[in-house]
């Protein structure tokens, strides 16, 4: 066992609720996707890995070390939490700088590295605006910037693409790929398989706190393609956007669950995610965020676990 992450029979209870159930998996070098529906245990596993939760049973190591209360190990990792709350009065620049100072980086370097990290994630133009005014996708990018600004060995990203707009997704995925190319390791959770496919073939499927499968992504692609994939799009003009998207032959249905929301279902998610940015760019429609409800993935998981 010499993986970046080794978990053997790890269990975690929250009172009566089981967060992880004898989770056993080994995550190798490079980028690994942790895929599972909401409530599967992805965030619990990540909290265990960054030492903010203590396992009730089993053994877990990150970079060969026990992460619980392991302060030196924290220098080696960059963590991007799922939650969206920040100190909203801080600007993006101040937010990243502050967290770099907590790492012990000198003020001048903090400023320089924060600026560089914000540039990498495409937030330079918004760096001096308070984060409370950021869209959800911009916040995701700010959190990614703070996670990689101190040059960690491993990035642990909890749903980094959740709510990000199309351009933001491109930035985030590109940043993750570059980080891995440079020798870094990435653990990234998502409940949207098609997002992770763009950056890695290595996935671990998690459901009800258990690792139910791991390995190459293509093996389960066929299964998922039989279930229409839902995408919720935040836009000020959902009907105009639906009209523009109608030319995609693989779309199954459109719904308008709210005045600023369009819900589409597609049989070819990869094609949808590939074509969407171009359509948005051509029509100049305002798309503020994308999110995939996990019902399609959940259906596949129910199938997999019988």
């Amino acid at each position: 066992m010499n993986g970046v992450v080794e978990a053997v029979g790890v269990s975690k209870w929250y009172g009566e609720v089981l967060g992880l159930n004898a989770f056993t998996a080994s995550f190798g070098k490079g980028i690994t996707g942790l895929v599972g529906p909401n409530g599967a245990g992805k965030s619990t596993l990540f909290k265990l890995l960054i030492g903010q939760l203590h396992s009730d049973q089993g053994k877990i190591t990150l970079l060969g070390e026990n992460p619980w209360n392991n302060v030196p190990l924290k220098r080696r990792l960059g963590y991007c939490p799922e939650q969206n709350q920040l100190y909203g009065w801080l600007t993006g620049q101040q937010f990243v700088e502050t967290l770099l100072r907590l790492d012990g980086m000198p003020a001048a370097e903090s400023r320089k590295e924060a600026t560089a990290a914000l540039k990498v994630v495409g937030l330079s133009s918004a760096a001096h605006r308070p984060t409370r005014g950021y869209s959800r996708g911009m916040r995701q990018r700010a959190k990614l910037a703070q996670a990689l600004a101190h040059h960690p060995e491993i990035l642990i990203l909890d749903e980094p693409l959740s709510g990000a707009d199309p351009a933001g997704r491109v930035h985030i995925l590109r940043t993750i790929s570059e980080f891995a190319k440079d020798g870094g390791h990435v653990l990234m959770s998502t409940h949207v398989l098609y997002e992770i496919e763009r950056v890695t073939n290595n996935i671990v499927l998690i459901h009800n706190g258990k690792a139910i499968a791991s390995g190459n992504i293509h093996a389960i692609r066929a299964l998922i393609d039989t279930h229409p994939h839902a995408v919720r799009i935040e836009t000020s003009k959902p009907r105009q956007l639906a009209q523009a998207l109608a030319r995609m032959e693989h779309l199954v249905s459109f719904e308008f669950p709210a005045a600023d929301t369009l819900l589409v279902r597609t049989r070819k998610p990869d094609a949808f995610y590939r074509e969407l940015p171009q359509i948005v760019s051509d029509t100049k429609l305002d798309v503020r965020g994308l999110e995939s409800p996990d019902d399609s993935l959940d259906a596949v998981f129910r199938y997999l676990v019988g």
């Binding site: 960054i50 924290k74 963590y79 939490p81 907590l102 703070q146």
Partner: peptide
């Protein structure tokens, strides 16, 4: 969460 994700005891 962010504080404790840094080398802070």
């Amino acid at each position: 969460t962010l504080y404790l994700s840094r080398p802070i005891t």
